[in-house]
Nucleic acid binder design. Structure first.
Length: 870
RNA sequence: GCGGAUGUGGCGAAAUUGGUAGACGCACUAGACUUAGGAUCUAGCGCCGCGAGGCAUGGGGGUUCGAGUCCCUCCAUCCGCACCA
């Protein structure tokens, strides 16, 4: 058997690729472009585990394949290097996050290098590098200097808005703005002080400061965005999160809600991701209308998607936070209402969510008039009404809505059916079938007729109109942290101003500690003498993790440009990402924000595409597969997996590195757990078998499989192929090293094809037989179509079959081996490069062309079906 | 509760549009070569059956000459959202 010395081969070619800069790419008008992108990693201290490279391997294979197919391939890598873990480590140890981050990046790069990836490292980006965040700050400036024109349905320069204010105030303005924006005339605008004008403009800018209710995490000392909160706890660290009002930088993503929704129909993304984004955006079409409060000037405005059921309204419900509550509550009800409101408002998010089913509420004593039938309906307060959605008030129709129904039953309020055949004996009936009854002007109409008729009525009377509501909220953009991008913002007369372009980047200052100040300001408050030249104070919060990742894919196109975030020529050539690969956990975070920023940059004419990634694939998560040994309770004895039923046992985690094919190395186990050194082991069939559990890969579960170890044992080529062989990239699965030998064997066979018994390279120039050609072209052709549909696991199988068959024929003919090596090179680039050079080529196999397939060898024997089809 | 996805041997999985189910690999069994082998090679390996043969793609039903694939229904698992009016 010839020796396949992967260690030497891989080292040699990795060095060569780096030195010769084989993977550097430039714009080339003569070739079609292909931009393939991985979600760049956060460089954590733990390094890569075996799950991380899964996506990188897949994209690398496709990148190499596309190169062979004649594409000019952009395949970059970088680091999302601002983030919380480095900061927390800094708090604990005093080490500057920049230092630990640099060390982690170094380690990541070594690991990536050892896998043989074909990245163009000359385009590397790091979000924490001033030369990168200079442009993040620059984009922030563009957002600050823009507003959203709802008529043109695009962002425009804030200067246009100011010009209109001067001319005619804001009466005619069609723009997205804060809800509390007062109307003013041109004269009133001119009469405002500069600071007041600035405060008014903030209500329109696409990034703005406003007093908002935020997710405050006391343990982390910062606010979190909605997508960083899960079930009332922080996504990172799992600390409790509470609601708190504070002035915050926000991004007016709501202005783009509709376009973010409709844009989904133009891109080839996984349906689950699109669906999650749709839900997150939460568009609902309905109507808003006023109910007059009896005895008051005030009206209650409600939002409803079922205006057809207006005659079924038997009460109104306000959110406990509503400002009207105090005003309209009668003397009799006051004590009860106050008690309920303070209870409801002080309840934590967590409690509120866990008690969803519980019906609570209180009557205010006041009544409102249903404008359709002039009937009096009682006004209640209930915490199932959310202050933040719609108008914070609901017209309750117990016959058609289950929550209203439960509420009505609980408090014995009337229930009025509005469709014939409605059955409300057990629960509300939300169906819209049949004709309307008890419904005044809508009687006898069908659902589809009732809606327009009702809206018509609202508009005639001037008490309401059609309305579209979105669930998505503006994104909080400021974080009370150190390790993030500083804002290009300083304060003068209490209003924010921007630094000029030539003052960028506004670099992160040094601080003595990475903690908030004694007065509760963010860590940047500790920076000494950190002001503008004129002595104005800078913004002390920093940008969130998603700032840099919202546009990094454009930076790769022209990563070293010092004049622009990317030059026009590069942007026009590379346009957008052809294939983006990453985890689905970013569905409503990064993957939404980055679409938002792209649309904004498009509106302002900075980029030529409205969606930055045409196709997205989610790679599945690799879970850990823990090995368990079963200890008999109360005894120092372990039993093999199959015998554990005979005892009461406790499962003990075993380091997966001392288990092979579920068989435990008992001696190693005794070293691993010193308390088991003199334990007894009950075996089955002479071996001790372990059980397994699927869990998250983590150190504490001893189930982390490190790619470095596997590369050391089998080589990078084997690991690459094995990770692909494991199954479809989209599928989540537990890591299992159990089949890796098969792939390793395959590569050794491939090596042996071109070597004689004495390990000397040997191929012959003989003409291949038809059978040999058929084996070759079958594999190449199948691989082509499988790679095109991203079925990389079956490609590996194809080549295994080919090599097995060629081995059986003892085929070592150049005309077969050479194309085969090209075909395999995307998967196993090192061994392919070695063989390629042994075959006498002086250039890299990267520069080869995918072999043309000679179809005449592929003619199949036809198969007759028992019955023919007409 | 709503939405989405997935169910195929002991295991990871194939089967692109309805056309010979289980390719390929792991594990397992037997054999060969070996001082030895955790190397290599050969053969076997869905289930029942000595066999011919029968039964099999989560369960049940349907369309079809033909269904893992299409339709209906039920079940299980995973993921996302969760009082959104």
């Amino acid at each position: 058997m010839a020796d396949y010395d992967f260690g030497t081969i891989e080292q040699k070619w990795q060095d060569h690729w780096t030195k010769a800069q084989v993977y550097q790419v430039n714009e080339d008008a003569n070739k079609p472009k292909y931009y393939i992108l991985d979600m760049f990693p956060y460089p954590s201290g733990a390094g890569l585990h075996v799950g991380h490279p899964l996506g990188y391997i897949a994209t690398d294979i496709i990148a190499r394949y596309k190169r062979l197919k004649g594409f000019n391939v952009l395949h970059p890598m970088g680091f999302d290097s601002f983030g919380l873990p480095a900061e927390q480590y800094a708090i604990q140890t005093g080490q500057h996050p920049a230092k630990t981050t640099a060390a982690n990046i170094q380690r990541y790069k070594e690991q990536l290098r050892s896998l043989g990836f074909s990245y163009d490292w000359s385009r590397e980006v790091q979000t924490s590098d001033p030369s990168f965040y200079k442009w993040t700050q620059w984009i922030f400036k563009q957002l600050f200097n823009a507003y959203y024109d709802t008529k043109l349905d695009k962002a425009r320069s804030i200067d246009d808005l100011i010009a209109q204010f001067k001319l005619s105030g804001n009466k005619e303005i069609t723009a997205v703005c804060d809800e509390d924006t007062p109307s003013f005339t041109a004269a009133q605008w001119q009469g405002l002080s500069p600071a007041e004008q600035q405060r008014t403009l903030l209500k329109y800018r696409l990034t703005y400061i406003a007093e908002t209710s935020v997710n405050w995490c006391p343990a982390l000392g910062t606010v979190l965005s909605n997508d960083e909160v899960k079930d009332g706890f922080s996504e990172r660290g799992g600390h409790p999160v509470e609601k708190k009002k504070m002035p915050q930088w926000s991004m007016r993503i709501t202005a783009y809600a509709d376009r973010l929704l409709s844009g989904l129909d133009t891109i080839d993304w996984p349906e689950p991701i699109k669906e999650m984004q749709r839900n997150w955006i939460g568009k609902s079409i309905g109507a808003e209308m006023d109910f007059q409060i009896e005895g008051y000037e005030d009206k209650i405005r409600v939002f409803t998607t079922r205006i057809d059921t207006i005659y079924g309204v038997t009460f109104l419900t306000l959110a406990p936070e509503s400002e009207l509550v105090e005003k309209i509550t009668t003397e009799v009800q006051k004590a009860e209402v106050d008690a309920y409101v303070s209870w409801a408002v002080n309840r934590s998010e967590r409690e509120r969510m866990s008690e969803v089913k519980k019906v609570t509420g209180v009557f205010t004593g006041a009544y409102a008039i249903n404008p359709f039938n002039e009937e009096k309906v009682p006004i209640w307060i209930a915490d199932y009404v959310l202050a933040g959605y719609g108008t914070g008030a609901v017209m309750a129709v117990p016959s058609g809505d289950q929550r209203d129904y439960d509420f009505a039953k609980h408090f014995e309020l009337p229930i009025v059916p509005v469709y014939e055949n409605m059955d409300m004996s057990e629960q509300a009936d939300p169906t819209k079938e049949g004709k309307m009854i008890n419904s005044g002007i809508l009687d006898g109409l069908k659902y589809s007729e009732a809606i327009p008729r009702a809206i018509e009525f609202l508009e005639e009377k001037g008490i309401g109109e059609k309305k579209i509501n979105f669930r998505i909220r503006d994104a909080i953009f400021g974080r009370q942290r150190y390790w993030g991008e500083p804002f290009p913002v300083y304060y003068k007369d209490g209003v924010p101003h921007l630094l000029s372009d030539n003052q960028l980047p506004n670099e992160l200052p040094e601080v003595d500690k990475f903690l908030p100040t004694e007065t509760g300001e963010p860590p940047l408050g500790r920076a000494q003498d950190w002001t503008t030249a004129e002595g104005y104070e800078f913004e002390l919060t920093t940008m969130p993790g998603w700032a840099g990742s919202s546009w990094y894919f454009f930076r790769y196109m022209d990563a070293n440009n010092t004049q622009e975030f990317a030059g026009k020529a590069a942007l026009d050539y590379w346009k957008d990402v052809d294939l983006y690969l990453g985890g689905s956990e970013h569905a409503t975070g990064h993957l939404l924000y980055s679409r938002f920023w792209t649309k904004f940059l498009f509106d302002m004419g900075f980029v030529s595409v409205e969606e930055y990634a045409q196709k997205l694939i989610n790679q599945g998560m690799i879970q850990g597969r823990s090995s368990m040994a079963y200890r008999v309770n109360g005894e120092n004895k372990y039993v093999s997996y199959g015998l554990r039923g005979n005892y009461e046992t406790t499962a003990i985690h075993v380091d997966v590195s001392i288990v092979k094919d579920d068989v435990l190395d008992i001696e190693a186990f005794k070293r691993f757990r010193p308390d088991a050194a003199d334990a007894s082991f009950e075996l089955e069939n002479g071996v001790f078998r372990c059980g397994s559990e699927v869990e998250k890969m983590s150190k504490s579960k001893f189930n982390v499989v490190n790619p470095d170890d596997l590369i050391g044992r089998y080589g990078a080529d084997t690991l690459r192929m094995y990770e692909m062989f494991l199954g479809p990239i989209e599928q989540s699965k537990p890591w299992n090293t159990n089949g890796i030998e098969g792939v390793y064997k395959f590569l050794r066979k491939l090596w042996a094809l071109a070597h004689d018994a004495k390990s000397s390279f040997q191929v012959t120039e003989d003409s291949p037989s038809k059978a040999e050609f058929k084996i070759l072209y079958t594999a190449l052709k199948k691989s082509e179509s499988d790679i095109d549909r991203l079925s990389l696991n079956t490609v590996v199988s194809n080549y295994m079959i080919a090599v097995n068959e060629l081995q059986a024929l003892r085929c070592n003919k150049r005309q077969i081996i050479e194309p085969l090596v090209i075909g395999i090179s995307p998967f196993a680039p090192h061994i392919a490069e070695e063989l390629w050079h042994l075959l006498g080529h002086s250039t890299s196999v990267v520069d080869a062309a995918y072999p043309p397939i000679e179809e005449q060898y592929l003619l199949e024997d036809s198969f007759e079906y028992p019955v023919s089809i007409n």
